[in-house]
Design a protein around this nucleic acid. Structure first.
Lengths: 212, 212
DNA sequence: AATTACAGAGAACAGTTGTTAACTGCATGG
DNA sequence: CCATGCAGTTAACAACTGTTCTCTGTAATT
């Protein structure tokens, strides 16, 4: 399946990735709508015009970043809400997974949180579409749980959206906890985990009594 | 209390407000971090340098916009979660209030959703502080409810945050529903209201069984 | 071995940006 | 009534932006 790329195409993908990485770095302190194409090429060390060989505009680059940040996340989502284990276990595992992901890819998480409601329409749309896919997948996973017996499709989807939004909020809070003075960072992180856990627990309770 | 302003100060406040209004308008299609000071003054019809008489920078203007968008919202928050009426009634009333607010001040809502995780640190901080106040107020309101008997302070606050985040998500969804083709707008709005109502209901269920 | 395709460089463009300085006119307070 | 304060203007600056066109070297194709 995987055709070995020629020297030419390999080098092209390399600079393309360099542009994406540089952009992601620059986006830690600003929004996509203020990101200049020259700014990005300067950070990579390449001529401004080279940008056009890879992206039509910075908005286009933004859409590619959405793909990079969320595209490869679908397997993890399935694991997160997989139906194995006790309820409390599942919650702990989900929070743990989110925490680790934020630690591993903080810039990606920041980018998604920032641009989800950001000033660039195509990027918002791309994020919206990916999150809708996530919700669908969560719904499918929930449907396999015996607890969901008797639930309507609509109700499963509304719960799935609730979970997805909750994951994003939690991820964003973990990110905020990382900023600021080093000393109390661990305490802040633990606090976020604790609150998020209890919120998930409460939602889980509501879920169990939904059909009363 | 209210001292009648001189002609001078009145005119100053008028242009200041004009700057805020123009900025809010321009921010419908971009983020604050890309908003130029000249852009704003041009929209108002005033010299660029006049900007400095009112704000140190666009970030400073952003903080003022946060105040305008959220500062006057505290009474409404208290009403929204006030303990009068049946549970189902309260939910309906809350969703209704959110919907009306989005209808009345769409640009304000968009601004807050966009800049909450936006690229301008002081603005993020200002929004965070206001939302923390909201959570405190919601907590106080919840504490007065008989249902909250036996709840710890921490748990009340975690539930309050859950409610506040849920309100913001719902507001943002109402906003998205307003965009796009006119025809199905009402249907989209009704759908948002329906899903949000059920999510609130589920959270409410979890709340009732929290102490089991 | 000769030809083509194409990633990236270089230079130039018209237009924009934030900020400075010195100014003007008028409402205000003595 | 006059002197002061100050909102807003005008002009100018160096720096920056996105985009176009032309050119170069080299990998890929024939």
């Amino acid at each position: 399946m995987s055709h070995t790329l020629g020297i030419r195409q390999a080098q092209k993908q390399k600079t393309r990735q360099a542009l994406l990485d540089a952009a992601l770095g620059l986006l830690e302190e600003q929004s996509l709508s203020s990101l200049g194409l020259r700014e990005v090429t300067r950070a990579v060390g390449v001529a401004p015009t080279a940008f056009y060989r890879h992206f039509r505009s910075t908005a286009d680059l933004g859409v590619a970043l959405v793909e990079e940040a969320l595209g490869s996340l679908h397997p993890m989502i399935r694991t997160t809400v997989s139906t194995t284990g006790d309820h409390e276990e599942r919650i702990t595992r989900a929070i743990e997974l989110i925490s680790r992901h934020v630690d591993g890819y903080p810039a990606h998480v920041r980018f998604i949180a920032r641009e989800r409601h950001g000033g660039v329409q195509p990027v918002r749309e791309a994020i919206r579409a990916q999150l809708a896919r996530f919700a669908q997948e969560v719904k499918d996973e929930l449907a396999q749980d015996p607890v969901s017996e008797g639930w309507s499709e609509d109700d499963l989807l509304m719960l799935a959206h609730l979970y997805v939004d909750q994951m994003l909020i939690t991820a964003s809070l973990f990110l905020e906890a990382q900023e600021g003075p080093e000393e109390e960072r661990e305490e802040r992180t633990r606090n976020v985990a604790q609150v998020a856990t209890r919120q998930m627990r409460l939602i889980g309770l509501g879920r169990h009594h939904w059909l009363d």
